[in-house]
Amino acid sequence: MHSLHFTGESSSNGMVERDFTVGDVPGVLWSPASGAADRAPLVLMGHGGGNHKKHPAMAGRARLLVNGCGFHVAVVDAPGHGDRPRTAHDEEEIAELFRARAAGEPEGPIVVRYNAHLAELAVPEWRATLDALQRLPEIGADGPVGYWGINMGTAIGIPFVAADTRITAAVFGQHWPDVLAEQAARITIPIEFDLQWDDEHIPREAGLALFDAFASKEKTLHANSGKHKELPRFEADSGARFFARHLGRGVAASA
């Protein structure tokens, strides 16, 4: 059993930001500045490939959830990302991705393979992190928990959510179904799914196949025109409203 150790604290934008470690995995926990110790739902967020726990997308979504809903939000660095060292395997896969990109070859097979490897490492880490977070009095073991992850956050999040019944609602999107469809079929919680209709990397048929694979009775598809990196910012507002509705903590405000 790994304990959570806080390693730093600061306040800004109405949030308390606390850095922590669980074992050798670094993370950040954002909480409302007014009442950081109050019991509230928790949303776990998985960052995208090549990013890190405090990437602006993570901090922006956290502000919506913390200031708009009064939630706690936690993010950890995925293996080989952020403050975690890369292995020789990481370097080989990243070099192969850049080679394919420069040659104009499909990136999907490499990304799918590499993300599946990262998920094998990350899922046990996420479960241990959730164990540790739920021992905090302001979160507790009986409160609702959500998960929000796009791209690589989906590649790690789907097997994590499929394996852990504590997650009660999730936002996913923008990934291939290859190794995820079977695990998605085990997920029955409410789902919101983001898809870019003109994605140059993930064919829309592939995105639709992954959405279709979820066994959830309540699942909503948000398909927007635009390329892979053009997911509209208003989808973050929608995700916050989704969690406000399903985790039972008021209505999120736009930010």
Rank of each mutant, 00 (worst) to 15 (best):
P85S: 10
A100I: 09
I94S: 12
R99T: 07
E93M: 15
H89T: 15
P85H: 09
I110T: 03
I94Q: 11
R99P: 01
D90V: 05
E91K: 15
A95K: 12
R101S: 09
T87W: 05
H89A: 15
E107K: 08
R99L: 07
P109C: 02
P106M: 02
T87K: 07
H89C: 13
E96L: 13
A103D: 03
F98H: 08
I94L: 12
G104R: 01
E96D: 14
T87S: 09
A103R: 00
R99K: 09
G104L: 00
H89S: 15
A95V: 12
A102N: 11
V112A: 13
T87H: 07
P109W: 00
E96V: 13
E96R: 15
L97I: 03
L97A: 08
R86Y: 01
E91I: 14
E93L: 13
E91D: 14
E91Y: 13
R101D: 04
E107W: 07
I110F: 01
A95F: 08
P85D: 10
Y114N: 04
E107C: 10
E93T: 14
V112M: 10
A95Y: 12
L97C: 07
E93A: 15
E105V: 03
E92A: 14
P85A: 09
R113F: 00
T87M: 05
E92S: 14
P109D: 00
D90S: 04
E105D: 04
A88Q: 12
E107N: 11
G108K: 09
G108F: 06
V111F: 02
Y114D: 04
G104P: 02
P85W: 06
L97D: 11
T87D: 10
E105W: 02
E93W: 14
A100W: 08
Y114F: 06
G104T: 01
E107P: 08
A95D: 14
R101F: 06
P109I: 04
R99M: 06
R113H: 03
L97S: 07
A88W: 09
A103T: 04
E91C: 13
R101N: 05
E92L: 13
A88N: 13
V111E: 03
R86T: 04
T87I: 07
P109Q: 02
E107Y: 09
R101C: 03
T87F: 05
F98P: 02
A95R: 13
Y114P: 06
A95M: 09
A95I: 10
E105G: 06
E96G: 13
A88M: 14
Y114Q: 01
G108H: 04
E92W: 11
P85E: 09
P106T: 05
A100K: 11
H89N: 14
A100T: 11
R101P: 00
P85N: 05
A100R: 13
A103Q: 03
A100M: 11
H89V: 12
A103F: 02
P106R: 05
E92P: 08
V111M: 02
G104W: 00
R101V: 04
T87G: 07
E91P: 11
